[in-house]
């Protein structure tokens, strides 16, 4: 994904950059070749797990930023980044090619504190009953897991499918925010408001989708680079 800037990166940094880009745009495409490249450049298992965690976290934060329409509010001497909103998402592979990642590989064992903090976070986002119901959360997570090609999580949630127009709205929102976060507009939230979702519920809609995208990338990144 990097172009000219690649030239200013060390070989070690370029490997990290390529991994971040691949895990973000196409988490199903991560192969053991990355593990070999990490090892060749002195990146041990702890460093790779930390890199995976950062990619996952920023797949959450960028989706929150894109869906809530917050302003950029840090002072920076760098040129303002202009998103390419016409960019097409990476095509998703057929379901038979989606990776399976078992439960024990869906956390980062090198960082138990992080794992515990993540568990508390996911319990609040996925398992509480207010201001969204459990079923609404599962619908959103199912769509996000499918768009991330996360076979295990998608299969866990396979029996939760939209049953009416209101649920279809949630499904559509989750797929847009998962697949093309750079194309979110105020109208996406307005559609949910018109369906009766109050502001705190909208925050949770965004958070469920963003967290599932993050968690699917954490799981696939860790499982597919583990040596």
């Amino acid at each position: 994904m990097l172009t000219r800037a690649d030239e200013s990166l060390s070989a070690r940094e370029a490997v990290l950059a390529r991994y971040a880009a691949a895990l973000t745009a196409a988490p199903w495409s991560i192969t053991p070749a990355f593990a070999e490249q990490f090892a060749a450049h002195g990146l041990d298992g702890d460093a790779v797990q930390a890199a995976t965690g950062v990619v996952a976290m920023f797949n959450y934060l960028t989706r929150v930023a894109d869906a809530t329409g917050i302003d950029f509010d840090y002072a920076s001497p760098l040129p303002v980044f202009q998103p390419d909103r016409d960019r097409d998402p990476t095509p998703r592979p057929a379901r038979r090619h989606w990776p399976s990642v078992a439960g024990e590989d869906r956390t980062l064992p090198a960082f138990p504190d992080l794992g515990q903090a993540w568990q508390r976070w996911r319990t609040h986002v996925f398992d509480t009953d207010e201001p969204l119901t459990g079923r609404e959360r599962r619908l959103l997570a199912a769509a996000a897991a499918q768009e991330s090609c996360d076979r295990t999580r998608a299969e866990d949630l396979a029996d939760t499918v939209p049953g009416d127009d209101r649920e279809s709205l949630l499904d559509t929102f989750a797929r847009r925010l998962s697949r093309q976060p750079w194309r979110m507009t105020p109208a996406d939230l307005d559609g949910l408001r018109a369906a009766g979702y109050p502001e705190p519920a909208l925050l949770h809609v965004i958070s469920v989708v963003a967290l599932q995208n993050a968690e699917s990338r954490l799981a696939m990144g860790h499982a597919l680079t583990r040596r």
């Binding site: 991994y19 460093a47 950062v54 797949n59 303002v80 909103r85």
Partner: peptide
């Protein structure tokens, strides 16, 4: 974590750029 601040910044910047996001 064990990664340096510079490494984390690189990874987060590439992730944001890949997602076409300013953040």
């Amino acid at each position: 974590s064990t990664l340096s601040w510079a490494d984390r910044e690189l990874i987060s910047s590439v992730t944001s750029r890949t997602n076409q996001c300013f953040y």
